[in-house]
Write a protein that binds this DNA or RNA. Structure first.
Lengths: 145, 145
DNA sequence: AGTAATTAGGATAATAATATCTAAAAAGGG
DNA sequence: CCCTTTTTAGATATTATTATCCTAATTACT
């Protein structure tokens, strides 16, 4: 609804990295653990490196890691570099022609909802992701055990 | 952000039809007035006919028209037949693997926002669209005149 | 130095979304 | 009944997205 696959994979990979911030993780490892297409993921990680959200190291013991603390990286940042955020800032419902002849009739009504989405992405960091994940696991463990 | 192009075109075309509910409108006419790719629009209109949202007539005086009153057709209906609404009902942020190993950490937080979107689509009819359009035109006319 | 491990990046492939073209079918008007 | 108009439907084209493969470059360890 909000992300491309590419962006989804980026978020999942970066969440994984946030969960293992004590070391570097290989693309292959992330792909296997998160069940992502490996080569596609590698590409995505490369762009995240270029955008300075990740750091990488080649060779044995190489891999990827977050370039800054998980709590300072938001979903909005990631989406911005992977998908762009135009869709969150332009005409709310994708009716491209907003002008006198064909003004977007929903713009005003939809705007507050769109703002909520944007806010949510801006206020949710990778640290929030891992925290929520931990909670979920705890709960599902308690339920099954 | 919410619709595919196809769905956007469908909504714009159907809004046009709602504005001219007194007669049938040709695909070509709609395409020209709404600045849509004509042949692609024709395809879309055909599927809307199959889905019973529109009725069509061939030959001279032919064209398309809404199959029921504008106020009974919502954006949700249209999206449902054109794009599907899975993205509004499944994992909120597109993280496809929601399970014990990888539960979607955002699901709970995002759900209310998603519900707002869904509600909005369900409560906005083509009649609302045309009404909002009329208002917009009136305002922009007053401002410029 | 040599070798294995790993990222980087270019080329290619597969699939889905978007768009166009053409021929056939249906309807109305002469 | 024929001609024109218009939808219908199927084939094709284009573009974007998603995904894979291959080679090069870099690094760590021996």
């Amino acid at each position: 609804m909000i992300y491309s696959k590419e962006c989804e994979y980026a978020i999942r990979a970066m969440t994984y990295l946030a969960q293992h911030a004590d070391r570097r993780c290989m693309a292959k490892e992330i792909a296997e653990k998160e069940n992502l297409p490996q080569h596609f993921l590698s590409k995505i990680l490369q762009t995240l490196v270029r955008e300075k959200l990740l750091e990488s190291a080649k060779g044995p013991k190489g891999g990827f890691q977050l370039s800054k603390p998980a709590k300072t990286i938001t979903l909005y940042h990631i989406k911005k570099f992977v998908d762009g955020v135009d869709d969150l800032n332009e005409c709310a419902v994708g009716l491209t022609k907003c002008n006198d002849e064909m003004p977007c009739p929903l713009h005003d009504d939809f705007k507050p909802i769109r703002e909520k989405v944007k806010n949510y992405l801006k206020s949710t960091s990778l640290a929030d992701m891992t925290k929520a994940l931990d909670n979920k696991k705890k709960i599902s463990k308690a339920a099954s055990g």
